[in-house]
Amino acid sequence: EPELVFKVRVRTKDGRELEIEVSAEDLEKLLEALPDIEEVEIEEVEP
């Protein structure tokens, strides 16, 4: 069974934007590691 992958769009407080694809596990780590995120948009990517 393929692992869930999420497309994550992040905007930081200083206005930088970042778009990455991460696994569910990595997404959890990412959110814990970035306390200064202003906006996060997450969508599931079809395998």
Score class of each variant (00 low, 15 high):
residue 10 V to F: 13
residue 7 K to P: 00
residue 35 P to E: 14
residue 30 L to M: 06
residue 5 V to A: 05
residue 33 A to S: 14
residue 38 E to W: 15
residue 7 K to I: 12
residue 35 P to H: 14
residue 20 I to G: 02
residue 24 A to Q: 07
residue 11 R to N: 03
residue 22 V to A: 05
residue 41 E to F: 14
residue 27 L to H: 00
residue 23 S to R: 11
residue 20 I to N: 00
residue 18 L to N: 01
residue 42 I to S: 03
residue 14 D to A: 04
residue 22 V to N: 00
residue 4 L to T: 10
residue 26 D to P: 00
residue 19 E to C: 15
residue 43 E to R: 11
residue 4 L to H: 08
residue 16 R to D: 04
residue 23 S to W: 10
residue 13 K to V: 04
residue 11 R to H: 06
residue 7 K to V: 07
residue 11 R to K: 10
residue 24 A to W: 14
residue 8 V to I: 09
residue 7 K to E: 01
residue 27 L to E: 00
residue 8 V to N: 00
residue 17 E to T: 14
residue 19 E to K: 08
residue 10 V to S: 00
residue 9 R to V: 08
residue 35 P to G: 15
residue 6 F to H: 02
residue 7 K to T: 04
residue 13 K to G: 03
residue 21 E to W: 15
residue 39 E to L: 15
residue 32 E to I: 08
residue 16 R to Q: 07
residue 19 E to Y: 14
residue 27 L to A: 01
residue 47 P to Y: 09
residue 21 E to H: 12
residue 31 L to C: 09
residue 44 E to Q: 12
residue 19 E to R: 10
residue 2 P to T: 08
residue 23 S to T: 09
residue 10 V to H: 01
residue 17 E to I: 15
residue 3 E to T: 13
residue 20 I to T: 02
residue 37 I to L: 08
residue 3 E to D: 09
residue 20 I to W: 14
residue 32 E to K: 09
residue 22 V to M: 08
residue 15 G to A: 01
residue 39 E to A: 11
residue 47 P to K: 10
residue 26 D to N: 08
residue 38 E to H: 07
residue 32 E to T: 09
residue 4 L to P: 09
residue 19 E to I: 14
residue 1 E to T: 13
residue 4 L to Y: 07
residue 33 A to I: 08
residue 35 P to L: 14
residue 7 K to H: 07
residue 20 I to D: 00
residue 10 V to P: 00
residue 6 F to L: 07
residue 40 V to L: 12
residue 1 E to Y: 13
residue 26 D to L: 07
residue 12 T to W: 15
residue 17 E to G: 03
residue 39 E to K: 12
residue 34 L to P: 01
residue 46 E to H: 12
residue 40 V to K: 02
residue 33 A to F: 12
residue 4 L to S: 08
residue 27 L to F: 05
residue 29 K to A: 11
residue 5 V to P: 02
residue 38 E to Q: 08
residue 40 V to G: 02
residue 36 D to G: 06
residue 34 L to K: 02
residue 19 E to H: 12
residue 5 V to W: 14
residue 28 E to S: 09
residue 45 V to M: 11
residue 12 T to M: 14
residue 29 K to E: 04
residue 32 E to G: 08
residue 41 E to K: 09
residue 21 E to S: 10
residue 11 R to W: 07
residue 6 F to W: 05
residue 13 K to Q: 05
residue 39 E to C: 07
residue 32 E to W: 10
residue 25 E to H: 11
residue 3 E to A: 13
residue 40 V to N: 02
residue 39 E to R: 11
residue 40 V to F: 11
residue 27 L to G: 01
residue 44 E to A: 13
residue 44 E to L: 15
residue 19 E to N: 09
residue 14 D to I: 02
residue 9 R to E: 01
residue 47 P to R: 11
residue 21 E to D: 05
residue 38 E to N: 06
residue 26 D to Q: 11
residue 18 L to P: 00
residue 1 E to I: 11
residue 38 E to I: 12
residue 34 L to T: 04
residue 18 L to G: 01
residue 41 E to I: 13
residue 3 E to R: 14
residue 19 E to L: 13
residue 8 V to K: 00
residue 39 E to Y: 15
residue 15 G to N: 03
residue 33 A to D: 07
residue 1 E to P: 12
residue 37 I to C: 12
residue 26 D to Y: 07
residue 30 L to H: 02
residue 25 E to N: 12
residue 12 T to K: 04
residue 5 V to S: 08
residue 2 P to V: 10
residue 36 D to V: 03
residue 13 K to N: 03
residue 43 E to H: 10
residue 2 P to G: 10
residue 18 L to D: 02
residue 30 L to Y: 07
residue 24 A to M: 12
residue 34 L to R: 04
residue 13 K to W: 05
residue 23 S to L: 06
residue 3 E to Q: 13
residue 47 P to Q: 10
residue 16 R to L: 08
residue 18 L to C: 11
residue 3 E to H: 12
residue 33 A to M: 13
residue 46 E to D: 09
residue 30 L to K: 00
residue 22 V to I: 08
residue 27 L to M: 03
residue 32 E to N: 11
residue 45 V to R: 06
residue 16 R to F: 06
residue 3 E to G: 11
residue 31 L to H: 02
residue 15 G to L: 01
residue 47 P to D: 07
residue 12 T to F: 15
residue 25 E to I: 10
residue 46 E to N: 11
residue 21 E to I: 15
residue 12 T to I: 04
residue 33 A to E: 09
residue 24 A to D: 01
residue 37 I to T: 06
residue 31 L to A: 02
residue 45 V to S: 07
residue 10 V to T: 01
residue 30 L to P: 00
residue 47 P to N: 09
residue 12 T to V: 05
residue 31 L to F: 06
residue 44 E to I: 15
residue 14 D to N: 05
residue 13 K to L: 05
residue 39 E to H: 13
residue 15 G to S: 01
residue 33 A to K: 07
residue 46 E to K: 14
residue 16 R to V: 08
residue 10 V to K: 00
residue 31 L to R: 04
residue 22 V to E: 00
residue 38 E to A: 09
residue 3 E to W: 09
residue 10 V to Y: 14
residue 5 V to E: 01
residue 8 V to R: 00
residue 9 R to C: 13
residue 30 L to I: 07
residue 34 L to H: 08
residue 4 L to N: 06
residue 21 E to V: 15
residue 35 P to A: 15
residue 43 E to T: 13
residue 14 D to W: 04
residue 9 R to D: 01
residue 10 V to Q: 00
residue 41 E to P: 02
residue 34 L to N: 06
residue 36 D to E: 08
residue 24 A to R: 12
